[in-house]
């Protein structure tokens, strides 16, 4: 069982998940107390793990599980919309700004916005003012899986010391350059290799990594098709 101190860590940021403030406001909105401790789901408890280990990976699992319970009772609160606005700068350089989002039934402001620059390297006769969009996709996959690893490990009472994900994506440029119509534009193959230093057996670490894929939005986005519509205002 994961426990926190007397003050529930609701104000700590929750990596890759539910902003703690939003979870709290949701819980308040529907009159639910956020549980300070939550039974660990049966499937997520490998037999050889001591549940009384005080692991702290900086993830507020209680808040996440509280959000899960809250949304089970109020499904519409779980309908979110994420957004980015991208401004072309020059050449292949563009800058995306990411601010608020919609969720929990209302517009959710953020007190900071983030920018991501994308460009192409000099080898493409470009300015190299940022990572390429495809590298940003790889980084998004790794970030999503790493956040999942931290959350699942926390839920299972596994203390992480170091997590590194190396991501590689293979691409044949004959696709995007229009050399060969048989070659796709996107990645042919993506490989993620984790190096994890944690207080757990190899099998338990493998199970954490597998579960993080199972619950990863970016893994799903990359492995399953989505409908995309692009319009001009």
């Amino acid at each position: 069982m994961t426990t926190h101190g007397a003050t529930p860590a609701l104000d700590r940021p929750v990596p890759n998940g539910w902003p703690a403030r939003a979870v709290r406001s949701l819980a308040r909105a529907i009159g639910l107390g956020i549980p300070h401790a939550h039974p660990i789901p049966e499937k997520e408890t490998p037999m050889n793990i001591q549940n009384d280990i005080q692991a702290d990976n900086g993830v507020n699992v209680d808040a996440l599980l509280g959000a899960r319970d809250a949304i089970s009772g109020m499904p519409e609160a779980g309908l979110f919309q994420w957004r980015a606005t991208c401004e072309w700068q020059s050449g292949t350089h563009s800058r995306s700004t990411i601010g608020g989002f919609f969720g929990l039934g209302e517009e959710q402001p953020r007190n900071a916005s983030f920018t991501i620059d994308a460009d192409h390297p000099e080898q493409f006769a470009a300015g190299n003012a940022g990572a390429t969009p495809v590298e940003i996709v790889l980084s998004a996959l790794a970030s999503c899986l790493a956040a999942g690893v931290a959350s699942v490990a926390q839920n299972r009472g596994i203390q992480l010391r170091k997590v590194t994900a190396h991501v590689e994506g293979d691409m044949d440029m004959a696709g995007i350059l229009g050399v060969d119509a048989e070659v796709r534009n996107g990645f042919n193959d993506i490989r993620v290799r984790f190096e994890i230093d944690a207080d757990a057996s190899d099998a338990d670490i493998a199970a954490v990594v597998a579960q993080s894929q199972k619950r990863s939005a970016v893994f799903d986005i990359i492995t399953n098709p989505s409908n995309v519509s692009v319009s001009v205002a």
Binding site: A206, A207, A210, K214, F219, N224, P225
Partner: peptide, 29 residues
Amino acid sequence: RLAMIREGSALFSGGLRNHCALADLKLGR
């Protein structure tokens, strides 16, 4: 997993390896 039918093709998930890994791990437990 069969994910979508689009333009006359069945599209399958690229997540098969993880589905197999999850099942092998669960079997091990």
